[in-house]
Design a protein around this nucleic acid. Sequence first.
RNA 1: CGGGGCGUAGCGCAGUCUGGUAGCGCACUCGGUUCGGGACCGAGGAGUCGGAGGUUCAAAUCCUCUCGCCCCGACCA
Length: 575
Amino acid sequence: MRFTHALIPTLKEAPQDATSASHALLLRGGYIRRLGAGIYDFLPLGLRVLRKVERIVRAEMDRAGALEILMPVLLPGEYYKETGRWDLYGDVLFRLKDRKGGDYNLAPTHEEIVTDIARREIKSWRDMPKNLYQIQTKFRDEPRPRAGLLRCREFLMKDAYSFDTSEEKALASYEKMRVAYNNIFTRMGLKYRMVAADSGAMGGNTSAEFQVLVDSGEDAIVACDKCDYAANVEVAEVKVVDPGRRAMATTIRMMKVHTPGQKTIEEVSTFLNVKPSDTFKSLLYVGEGSKEVVMALMRGDHALNEVKLARVLGVSSVHLASEADVKAATGAELGFAGPIGFKGKIYIDRAAALVRNGVSGANETDYHLANVNHGRDFDAEVVDVRQAQDGDLCPRCEGGRLHAYKGIEAGHIFVLGTHYSAKMGATFLDEQQQQKPVVMGCYGIGVSRLVATAIEQHHDDNGIAWPMRVAPYHVHICTLANDGAVVEAAQKLVDGLEAEGVEVLWDDRDERPGVKFKDADLLGVPLRVTIGAKGLAQGAVELKPRTEKDPKKAELVPLDVAAKTIADRVKSALG
RNA sequence: CGGGGCGUAGCGCAGUCUGGUAGCGCACUCGGUUCGGGACCGAGGAGUCGGAGGUUCAAAUCCUCUCGCCCCGACCA
């Protein structure tokens, strides 16, 4: 493709509202344009990348035995009403009416629709296992679309659904998808971890997320450096470590200390010259739908995991008590809450329960208590509500340590069980002629999100650096002059490469070299070939991988073998 | 939904406080000189100042309403 025939509107400056790297580079490189909040046009280059991601996903799904279908985006409202998600989904669901006033919604996901297919077409145990998938647009009226393609209101997703006769068989289908997903992320050239995840509102039990590791990621995950344990911090297990101070005398008298204005753990521990791990952090929480303020006591240097606390309380979610509630519950300003004298229910984290002679708030403004001991000075229910953090011992192996990573969720696989099939009457007859609900699994990959994710992981100050398999073109040729020899050499190389199946972008614009190099770096095609008088004088073209930072490090490739050499380089990168 | 910010040419911005007939850089068009990491000179084209209403002799600027967008939080199969 000649640059002058293409539509690649690059920008020197990123639009001001693009804050993430992928968003800014996709806009600057002329890959996408914004049409509205969370709604984007894919320009030719962007579509090429999207199609490449799709191709990889499709190939692995097909290889895993899944069958591609296409379900509509415009859905009669009855299906979501049938499972209750018409209401459950709330404002995230795009709803509309047809001319007769009938309810419709745009598909945010397709469990209902695929389950409808199953209940009509899958009748016998002989019909399973089956796995149906599609690559289709999804619509979600997100509370807050952001970061370009990372969180859109309209986006492209691959969603697959497995149907089995039993929980065990469903696990086998799930396992197949796990393998396929690993293949997909590996083929895309991404660094990722499969992590244990919260199943959330999907229902079901077994689930794992595929997190692409990038510093700008929104999800916090921990992974062991020794074994394969990895989890979203929302669900990460923690190992209780006995600080070895249990034997320490607990006979030291508790005493009140004046700590004017010292509110945070850091301030208090510095002020009293004690380690944060020898203090208690008293957090006041309110469960969803409750008015009761409860106290969660953490070791000073530990963080609380709200998902775990919600589970302990048996509620869907928890939130920190308001400042007014804290004052009412403790009779003190924020920062001086403590277990002693607290009227409400107290939960203490397992690690905090081991603290000896610790410091806690006194429930009195400007005062703390020293030499506080659980069991001696106050009672509390011992629970696990701690959030895993970097450096923790691995809960699964001996000696491994957890490291914290930031990730972007690019895929999620679930065993759904019979949640939808039971509700919608998707049943089959088993060998004993028993009518049973099919056991389902669902497996999603954010295809358009993956485009952005790949950039988040593969870019530098100058632009994108695509992995070969998802790059819009394999080779970017920059001709530095419009004279006969250069153009002739370029045309020959383009022909030679294309004959080998290599995708070539030829910057034939009448621009200065600097402009072409800057744009080449911005677009991020993996291999750049420079053809100019300098190289041609030596009978060669210059080859430079996008990832090579030093502009002088180009490799001279003799003209007569250039097509073959470069094509081989591309093929080896494509595997 | 709570908090903050922004809407002026395709992009980045100034002008708004203190009302006086819209400007800069890049991009674009034409002419010329250049040509190995975002060249230079000259001449141009391009704007309902987000929208509606109001105040005023006069509104990008002041007032009211409204729409949109971004960020933080809440939320996120």
